[in-house]
């Protein structure tokens, strides 16, 4: 359990909850912050099957080992960051999600040459959804985000408008709620990336709300 203190989302000062009134027209891009997402960085021997088994026994789902893959178990998602690095995400917005995931993993992976670090408060999570979300991100990102190349569940660390980001396609065009990306960005770049996205999405009738 974390000690109680005043925790603020990196975009709290923008007052997003007081913005983004619907004017009736359906927005082709919607922006929203997902505040207080739990984010845990896991490093460990990705080629060691006993390590992967130990994770699976504790989390009840397997760590992804293919480049850019993710796997979902209950409320958490494991994102592949590198051959020996993953991000474990719980984006429901519960402030104690990060410490909770971290302490469980630490107990399960004791004895392995692994590191479990709660980095929830170092990142902002911006959700960008709507039919033109791919086109908006593509304006500042060198990755191929075409539906043929970037599919549901895929994730990648890359650059967005020069900022280093982690992009995760949580739902594609066929999903019920439509296309949605989660973009994780360092806290200090959150405001910059938010305004950049707002500007990039302007021509599509962006609708920014919490």
């Amino acid at each position: 359990m974390i000690e109680r203190y005043l925790r603020q989302s990196p975009l709290a000062h923008l007052g997003l909850s007081g913005r983004g009134q619907d004017d009736g027209a359906p927005a082709q891009v919607r922006l929203a912050e997902r505040p207080f997402s739990g984010l845990v960085n896991l490093r460990g021997p990705g080629a060691d099957q006993t390590f992967l088994d130990a994770f699976e026994a504790a989390a009840e789902y397997a760590l992804p080992t293919a480049a850019g893959a993710s796997s979902v178990g209950g409320n958490t998602t494991a994102l592949w960051l590198g051959p020996r690095e993953w991000a474990i995400v719980d984006a429901r917005g519960e402030p104690d999600a990060g410490p909770r995931i971290a302490s469980r993993l630490r107990a399960a992976l004791a004895g392995f040459p692994a590191a479990v670090t709660d980095i929830s408060e170092s990142r902002a999570c911006i959700q960008i959804s709507g039919a033109k979300a791919r086109a908006t991100l593509q304006k500042g990102c060198p990755l191929d985000l075409h539906p043929r190349a970037f599919r549901q569940g895929q994730c990648a660390q890359t650059r967005l408008a020069k900022a280093s980001v982690l992009i995760h396609l949580t739902a594609d065009e066929s999903a019920q709620g439509g296309l949605a990306f989660d973009v994780y960005v360092a806290r200090s770049f959150a405001e910059y990336v938010w305004f950049w996205l707002e500007d990039a999405a302007c021509e599509y009738g962006a609708n920014a709300k919490l």
């Binding site: 480049a67 850019g68 051959p83 060198p142 890359t158 650059r159």
Partner: peptide, 11 residues
């Protein structure tokens, strides 16, 4: 070798 072809600005 791990992620596949990527743009130079990531490196």
């Amino acid at each position: 070798p791990y992620c596949g072809p990527r743009c130079e600005i990531e490196f």
